[in-house]
């Protein structure tokens, strides 16, 4: 390896000699043609994601336009909209409505629970507490998804800690009254929509906290001070200054909670009723039923819903807060 940079990118005459050896020559080539280096750097990741990911996604969408032969169970590879028609059957519409309603409720509840944590972490925690809060949010975020669900199975079991705590507080009657309600109730919490809802909120909560915290941290302290100087009470400052500026963060977090709830099939399977969610329907149709076209058509629903959602979130400025 001898010599120094030989040519400029404008192709000016060489002041110094070119490098020796293959590596040196390559290095010189990249210096003269930075576009070539850029191209070579982008090639592997774009090929990988383009072929493996986009290719598969495209293959899936293609199959949603095929249909299944009701008698032979074979997939007919010709264009039809029949499979999308099946989506509109009452049973399938139920599944979609149930999933979207659950995703909406989970998103609202996550925002309500997440906001105080994010607010405290962003505006009041200092030094050691700040680090503690950060890890306190990151650790549950990264803890195993299945272990978190398993933990709730332990908690919500009939002989588990939740019922034990209620019994000690003499509140068992309250739980029984709640479980007797239609729709949200069931024979026990672990086989009711209430249980599914709690676990969804628990598992996605950190995804809501982080963007809200990020948007709160970006609010200059001087704005809040100005509000106080102009005579606003702390509560008024919060509702008129801090909260509106944190909304993009809420919108960003809601993208995660909404999308993750739409696609999940493991939580409602383990803690929930026998009524299906979109994810479970996809899983059931592609698995035992072998009806890949219908499964594919079902996955188009979350894609479209998320597309609409992202479009609305973008208008609210959510992407600046991620």
């Amino acid at each position: 390896m001898s010599g120094t940079v030989a040519l400029t990118d404008r192709g000016a005459p060489a002041i110094l000699t070119a490098r020796n050896g293959l590596l040196g020559a390559l290095s010189d080539l990249f210096w003269r043609k930075p576009k070539l280096l850029l191209f070579l750097m982008l090639l592997p990741p774009v090929l990988w994601l383009g072929i493996v990911y986009l290719g598969s996604l495209f293959a899936l969408l293609l199959q949603s336009f095929f249909s299944i032969d009701e008698y032979s169970g074979m997939i007919k590879r010709e264009f039809t909209l029949k499979t999308y028609g099946e989506l509109l059957q009452p049973a399938n519409l139920d599944i979609m409505i149930r999933t979207v309603v659950m995703a909406t409720l989970v998103t609202i509840a996550s925002a309500v629970v997440a906001f105080p944590i994010a607010h405290y972490a962003a505006r009041y925690a200092r030094g050691k507490w700040k680090a503690l809060f950060y890890l306190g949010i990151m650790l549950p975020l990264w803890s195993s998804y299945l272990v978190k669900i398993y933990a709730w199975k332990l908690i919500l079991a009939k002989e588990g800690i939740f019922n034990w705590a209620l019994a000690n507080l003499h509140l068992t009657g309250l739980l029984e009254a709640w479980l007797a309600l239609p729709i949200v109730g069931g024979s026990s919490l672990s086989v009711s929509f209430t249980g599914t809802f709690i676990v969804f909120v628990y598992v996605w909560l950190p995804f809501m906290i982080l963007p809200i915290q990020a948007s709160l941290e970006r609010i200059p302290v001087s704005l809040v001070e100005a509000s106080a100087d102009l005579g606003a009470s702390p509560g008024r400052s919060f509702w008129s200054v801090i909260f509106p500026l944190a909304l993009p963060g809420v919108a960003a977090g809601s993208i995660f909670t909404f999308s993750l709830t739409l696609g999940d099939y493991i939580i409602p399977k383990i803690i929930g009723t026998s009524h299906l969610f979109i994810g479970q329907a996809v899983y059931a149709h592609q698995g035992t039923a072998g009806n890949i076209p219908l499964a594919a058509a079902f996955t188009v629903v979350p894609i479209v819903v998320m597309g609409l959602y992202l479009w609305m979130a973008k208008r609210m400025g959510a992407f600046d807060a991620i």
Binding site: Y53, S56, V282, Q286, A296, T299
Partner: peptide, 10 residues
Amino acid sequence: ALPGIITGIS
């Protein structure tokens, strides 16, 4: 960004 089930089934 898309639900994992979409990546999986694709």
